[in-house]
C-alpha cells in the first residue's frame, strides 16, 4: 500500500453550504503531508470524512486501504486523531483521558507517555475542567503520539500552544517521520508546515489548489530578484517571464518565472552586478498568492499572521 490516504472528487454540503467541492489529493505512506488552507476552506470537514464521522455526498476516499465510512472501526485501530478544538470531560483528569483514549485505540506505550508528558510539561493530575486550551491540546497530542498508530491525523494541533511547545511538537512530528509513520498535518501556520512537511496540499473553498512537494510548489512559482547594477538596466521588460518590473536608477526589482531566470541572470551580468538578492518564495508568499483572488484575498490577508 503506497498511499495512506487518497481522495478524489470529494463533495460534502451542509444545507446550502458547499463545504467540499471536488477535493482531490493523496498522502503517501510514510510522509508528513501538510494540509493548508484558510479557515473555512474545508480542512476539518475533510478530516472528519476521513474519520468516518461525516458521510461524503460524492467522490472517492480511501484511508489505509479501506473505506473511511464503512470500515471506520477497523481503520481507527491504526490511526490517531488530534482535533483542533479539543473538548474533554470536565470531571476526568488529563491522565485518565490520555489512558482512556489510548486504550480505546488499542493500547499506548507507557514509556512514551511519560516522556511526552515531561516534554510537553503537562500535569496529568489536573481535572480537564481546569486545563487551558493549550493544555487540553497537549492531552490529545500526548495520547495520539504515545499510541502505536500508523497514521496521525492532526487538525491544527498547535493553535493553542506557545512557541516553545510548538517547537517540541515539531520535534515530535520529525520523530514520527523517522519511525516511518504517516502524518496528515492540517494547518494555516505556514512556517510549521514548511519546517516538517515533505509534501503539501493547499485547498480553498473545498477544492484543491495545488498538491506536491515543497520543491515542486516552488518550481511552479516565481523568484523575486533584486539587483544593483553598474549601469542603468535596459531591455528587462522585453524578457520572457518577468513580472512586476521596477527600475530606479541602477536598481532593478522583479518577479521571475523559473524558465525566465536564465535570461534575467544573463542580462544582469551583462550590465555588471554590484549586489544581488534572489529569494525563493516562502510558503507565505505561495499561500498569499493562492488566496489573493476575489473575496478570498481579503480573508487571507486578515488571517495570515505577520
Amino acid at each position: 500500500m503506497r498511499e495512506a490516504i487518497s481522495v478524489s472528487g470529494l463533495r460534502k454540503s451542509f444545507g446550502r453550504t458547499q463545504a467540499l467541492d471536488g477535493l482531490a489529493f493523496s498522502v503517501r505512506a510514510g510522509e508528513v503531508h501538510g494540509f493548508l488552507g484558510p479557515n473555512g476552506a474545508g480542512k476539518t470537514t475533510t478530516i472528519r470524512i476521513l474519520l468516518g464521522l461525516l458521510r461524503r455526498d460524492a467522490g472517492e476516499a480511501r484511508l489505509l486501504g479501506g473505506d473511511p465510512w464503512r470500515d471506520a472501526v477497523e481503520l481507527h485501530r491504526r490511526l490517531a486523531y488530534v482535533p483542533g478544538d479539543v473538548a474533554l470531560w470536565p470531571n476526568l483528569s488529563g491522565g485518565e483521558v490520555i489512558d482512556l483514549l489510548g486504550r480505546l485505540r488499542g493500547g499506548l506505550d507507557p514509556r512514551r507517555r511519560a516522556e511526552l508528558l515531561e516534554r510537553f510539561e503537562l500535569d496529568p493530575k489536573k481535572k480537564c475542567r481546569a486545563y487551558s486550551t493549550g493544555n487540553r491540546q497537549k492531552v490529545a497530542l500526548v495520547s495520539a503520539l504515545a499510541s502505536g498508530a500508523d497514521l496521525l491525523l492532526l487538525d491544527e494541533p498547535t493553535s493553542g500552544l506557545d512557541p516553545l511547545m510548538k517547537a517540541v511538537f515539531r520535534e515530535c512530528v520529525t520523530e514520527e517521520q523517522q519511525r516511518s509513520r504517516t502524518v496528515l498535518l492540517s494547518s494555516h501556520i505556514l512556517a510549521e508546515v514548511e519546517a516538517v512537511c515533505d509534501r503539501v496540499t493547499t485547498i480553498r473553498d473545498g477544492r484543491t489548489v495545488e498538491s506536491g512537494t515543497l520543491a515542486e510548489l516552488r518550481h511552479l512559482t516565481r523568484t523575486s530578484v533584486s539587483a544593483e547594477l553598474e549601469a542603468p538596466p535596459v531591455g528587462f521588460s522585453e524578457l520572457e517571464g518577468v513580472h512586476d518590473l521596477q527600475v530606479e536608477g541602477t536598481t532593478v526589482r522583479c518577479q521571475v518565472d523559473p524558465e525566465g531566470l536564465d535570461g534575467v541572470l544573463r542580462r544582469l551580468t551583462t550590465a555588471g552586478v554590484r549586489s544581488l538578492t534572489s529569494q525563493p518564495p516562502t510558503l507565505e508568499e505561495l499561500f498569499m498568492r493562492h488566496y489573493r483572488t476575489g473575496e478570498a484575498a481579503a480573508r487571507s490577508r486578515a488571517e495570515t499572521p505577520r
Binding site: L53, E74, L79, P83, L101
Partner: peptide, 8 residues
C-alpha cells in the same frame, strides 16, 4: 469525536 475516532 475523540471516542469515535478511536476503535469504537
Amino acid at each position: 469525536e475523540p471516542v469515535l475516532s478511536a476503535q469504537v
